[in-house]
């Protein structure tokens, strides 16, 4: 039986493990129970700043603390980080202050809360900001490892986590393979490479199984860091496979698919099919129903893979 955990739990665990460093501070906007910063708050209330329901203020309080030598981790729902986008742009990214913003409940996988809570554009908008690292981990273990690595960074970051449980992929794997900016090759095949992030990495692995039944051998990459993008790895698998698919629970505009397409447009021009939310909003539904409705699950990824292969 596959172990299931939500990536937001990995974030909460990482904050607790980081707490030995007295410069680590946590900022909340009344969603600590949801983003999982509550564990840190319970253990270290003196280093937790409640900003009430005020995301714009939270981002800049974090900036002020970062400018004073602290390492702030601020979190809310991915969708609500967006109302503080200009604060992130002008108050954090521009002066390059190491504020680490975490947006939980990203993507349509968020489920029954419906479209108002399903951010499908966060990766795209934060990717446009100079100095900002953008991360979307695939499981709770990699979320924990990557969050802890961020604490050592001197630049700001945006990390998206997910509300609902997904398979734990790195339970029995050495943590040293998980590094910011380095995609992880989970499966090696020579017919097509599926480059996925977040909750769709486990779907990509299932898609590879479906393809294998038909004798198609797929490479599967967990591209947890959207920026800086691991273009070296993309070049390697592009050369090996000759066709690519990206898969993300995010708009097909501007996210992982957009980033990979930008790279390919000035390099190999390898055929690419993008699996993502097709320029529409979500609705209420269970996580697995949303992946089906939005065309994001394993079956859709496998179809996209075959289409990409046919374009070789």
């Amino acid at each position: 039986m596959t172990k299931m955990e939500a990536t937001r739990d990995g974030y909460g665990q990482a904050l607790l493990e980081l707490a030995d460093n007295e410069k680590i501070v946590v900022l909340e906007a009344d969603l600590g129970k949801s983003t999982k910063s509550l564990h840190f708050r319970k253990a270290h209330p003196e280093r937790t700043v409640s900003c009430g329901i005020g995301e714009q203020n939270m981002l800049l309080v974090a900036a002020g603390m970062a400018a004073s030598g602290y390492i702030p981790f601020a979190s809310t729902f991915a969708i609500f980080t967006e109302r503080a986008f200009e604060q992130m742009r002008n108050g954090v990214a521009r002066p390059n202050l190491p504020v680490h913003l975490c947006g939980s409940h990203g993507g349509t996988h968020t489920g029954t809360d419906g479209s108002s809570a399903q951010s499908i554009e966060d990766l795209a908008i934060y990717r446009t900001l100079p100095n900002v690292t953008v991360i979307h981990p695939s499981d709770s273990v990699s979320t924990r490892v990557l969050t802890k690595q961020l604490a050592a960074s001197s630049s700001p970051s945006y990390m998206r986590t997910a509300r609902n449980k997904t398979p734990v992929l790195y339970d029995d794997v050495g943590e040293d393979i998980i590094q910011i900016g380095k995609g992880i090759e989970l499966q090696n095949g020579s017919d097509v490479a599926i480059i996925a992030c977040g909750v769709l990495v486990s779907e990509a692995l299932k898609a590879a199984d479906l393809l294998a039944i038909e004798g198609i051998h797929a490479t599967v990459i967990d591209m947890h860091t959207i920026k800086p993008l691991d273009t070296k790895l993309i070049d390697v698998v592009s050369e090996r496979c000759g066709s690519l698919v990206t898969a993300e629970d995010h708009s097909i505009i501007g996210g992982l698919g957009g980033a990979v397409a930008e790279h390919l447009s000035t390099t190999s021009g390898t055929p690419l099919e993008r699996v993502g939310v097709n320029d529409r909003f979500g609705e209420s539904g269970q996580a697995h129903e949303m992946l089906e409705l939005m065309g994001l699950n394993a079956a859709h990824i496998a179809l996209a893979a075959k289409k990409s292969i046919s374009r070789k």
Binding site: Q56, N57, L60, V61, G64, M65, A67, S68, Q87
Partner: peptide, 15 residues
């Protein structure tokens, strides 16, 4: 933006 940032530097001073 400045008051929020100042709130951050003030909390940092207190810490």
């Amino acid at each position: 933006m400045g008051l929020s940032f100042g709130m951050g530097t003030a909390i940092a001073a207190r810490l």
